[in-house]
Write a protein that binds this DNA or RNA. Sequence first.
DNA 1: AATGAAAAGACCATAGG
DNA 2: CCTATGGTCTTTTCATT
Lengths: 164, 164
Amino acid sequence: MTPPKNPHPVSPPIDGTDRAILEALTADGRMTNAALAARVGVAESTCANRVKALRESGVIAGISARVDPAAVGRPIQAVVRVHLASHNRAHVNELFDRLVAIPGALSVIHVAGDDDFVLLVAVPSPQRLRDMILEHITSHPAVTKTETQLVFEVRDGAGVLGPL
Amino acid sequence: MTPPKNPHPVSPPIDGTDRAILEALTADGRMTNAALAARVGVAESTCANRVKALRESGVIAGISARVDPAAVGRPIQAVVRVHLASHNRAHVNELFDRLVAIPGALSVIHVAGDDDFVLLVAVPSPQRLRDMILEHITSHPAVTKTETQLVFEVRDGAGVLGPL
DNA sequence: AATGAAAAGACCATAGG
DNA sequence: CCTATGGTCTTTTCATT
């Protein structure tokens, strides 16, 4: 008999090579496979296979460009916290769908606690922030209250690859 | 005499082609230059030049892999809101530096409003969330209070390229 | 699984319209 | 801004260990 399998069908165990690949591609997602292989110390073909496996298993959710909101006409950012009256499942899902579709929404988080949703949005001006909240958020019947905080600065954190 | 120059050294105006490039690279940051050129309808040389300019001017802040936190041992996420006693500049900056260095910190936002910082963190377990907050946040002398909300789900928003 | 080597493909710089 | 052409670097595939 083989020993018990990893209970997770996806996400095969991540070894040191995989972690090094993830670190490198987090820093520079367009690094060539050749450079990546050299950096992590495996053959190019091996490296290419690892990356493919990491993408197919979803460990790498995607490789994408990060666009500076200010450079495309949205210099103001805000955190908007949304409270709901009804936690009815259909209402929550429907609102979630609406929130992610708001132009300028960067991310939408459904949370447990004081609030129900926390949004990060980027807008052209404070006036447009007000319009956005009134039109897309408080207008929804399930929303009882929003609290908005102007963003001074966003910084990426240390990320997910450090020590557990 | 040449006509007056664009006053902005960085961020030259973004035209439709640039927007299309940004959209494509946001969806797939590893698209080849040839594929990108075909998609946006310009010559490959033009496309390569546009992309280079967008990167150098900072409109494209970077191209990087997004790693699924759950796949690397951090299945629990939380939003942590941090209140400060002192808004002394040196204290704020020092705390900001500490917060971004916390292992598992995904992003740290300095805001104006009820809170001073809003963090998104990914941790291995609720116990480790508690440890993280006690050790790295509430232990700081300027922090008076934190409020933590468990994350049910994070979704990317429509992003920054839609209509203004 | 990992490797090395060879064929196919992508990229960059250059020059000219 | 487009086309075109080299030369160089990369990716991909496959037989081998």
